[in-house]
């Protein structure tokens, strides 16, 4: 499909591949995963009453979330070495109308609070219970904002119709929390040889919601593809949709994300409710994680490739 509109002609393939590649997809995935793990850890902490597995998951979610986020930042730095300067001096980010700046501040505050919680976990710091709960509540909100930020960061590219869809931030949030739960369930099984029913039920519910949101996202995108008053946007929207459903990324999207990341684990979760099996839980958690990563890759690649002119 050729894009014969002036709107996109300033872009070059160099810019697209440089700024939107696998490293950014990794950053978005790890950001979402870290946020999801922290939120799961927080809820596990709230309901941990004498439950060994929830206590283990709570510690894992909260302590590991910061490390996962730091790995995500490494991925970003690998792609954009210039970002290091803002780690040295974060006050440079002063345009609070830019999601890049807002997100960086959120990440900074999250990591500071997380570090305090890490010291507490390592018994280097004593925090009263009430204060700890308040701090964890604040950090869980920041974790939620990090997941949301990973989607809103993409909205900065105003010429990419796919990233302007309202379904995308919701999808990122649901997928981020879902992957976070999956990672925590996986760790819980490995550590305690038990799986927590409530967490599995929550993940299954989120996956069902995700399937609905994917349908909404595709309908939204196909609606954008038929806006006649804005041809350049509709051509790109249609190209993205074609790439996901019938093009270069259709296998990744349909089999990888929808199949492996949503339908397969949902069926496995359903089976595990009927008959308890740790192997089934492990496989479903891993497939949720793989599906979440594939989702970010497809969202980045299908949008960037749709704008590449002939």
């Amino acid at each position: 499909m050729s894009l014969n509109y002036i709107f996109f002609y300033g872009l070059s393939e160099h810019i697209l591949s440089k700024y939107w590649g696998i490293a950014i997809a990794t950053y978005l995935f790890l950001g979402g995963l870290a946020g999801g793990m922290h939120i799961t850890g927080y809820f596990a902490y709230l309901y941990r009453n004498k439950s060994e597995i929830l206590d283990t998951i709570s510690r894992f979610g909260i302590v590991l979330s910061g490390i996962v986020l730091v790995f995500g930042l490494f991925s970003l730095i690998y792609d954009h070495p210039n970002v290091v300067i803002t780690i040295i001096n974060p006050t440079l980010f002063r345009n609070l109308g830019s999601w890049l700046a807002i997100g960086s501040w959120i990440i900074l505050f999250f990591l500071i609070i997380w570090f305090g919680l890490l010291l507490e976990h390592l018994k280097k710091l004593k925090i009263p219970d009430r204060l700890r709960l308040a701090v964890m509540t604040i950090n869980s909100f920041l974790a939620f904002m990090i997941i949301l930020y990973t989607a809103l960061l993409l909205r900065g590219a105003m010429f990419v119709p796919m990233w302007q869809s309202l379904a995308l931030p919701m999808l990122f949030v649901v997928s981020g929390i879902s992957t976070g739960i999956a990672a925590c369930v996986l760790y819980g099984i490995i550590k305690t040889r038990k799986s927590e029913l409530r967490l599995k039920a929550a993940d299954a519910l989120l996956i069902a919601l995700e399937i609905g949101l994917v349908a909404y996202f595709l309908i939204d995108l196909s609606g954008m593809g038929s806006i006649s008053g804005f041809p350049s946007m509709s051509v790109a929207a249609k190209a993205s949709l074609d790439l996901m459903l019938d093009g270069a990324y259709s296998a990744l999207f349909i089999y990888g994300f929808v199949g492996l990341g949503m339908v397969f684990p949902l069926v496995l979760y359903g089976l595990s409710f009927l008959k308890k099996s740790l192997v089934t839980d492990i496989v479903s958690s891993i497939s949720v994680l793989i599906g979440g990563y594939i989702f970010r890759i497809v969202i980045i690649a299908a949008a960037a490739k749709a704008l590449t002119f002939p």
Partner: peptide
């Protein structure tokens, strides 16, 4: 950082 390059359609 290059964020402007991703925002500009031209």
């Amino acid at each position: 950082c290059g964020y402007c390059a991703t925002a500009c359609p031209f």
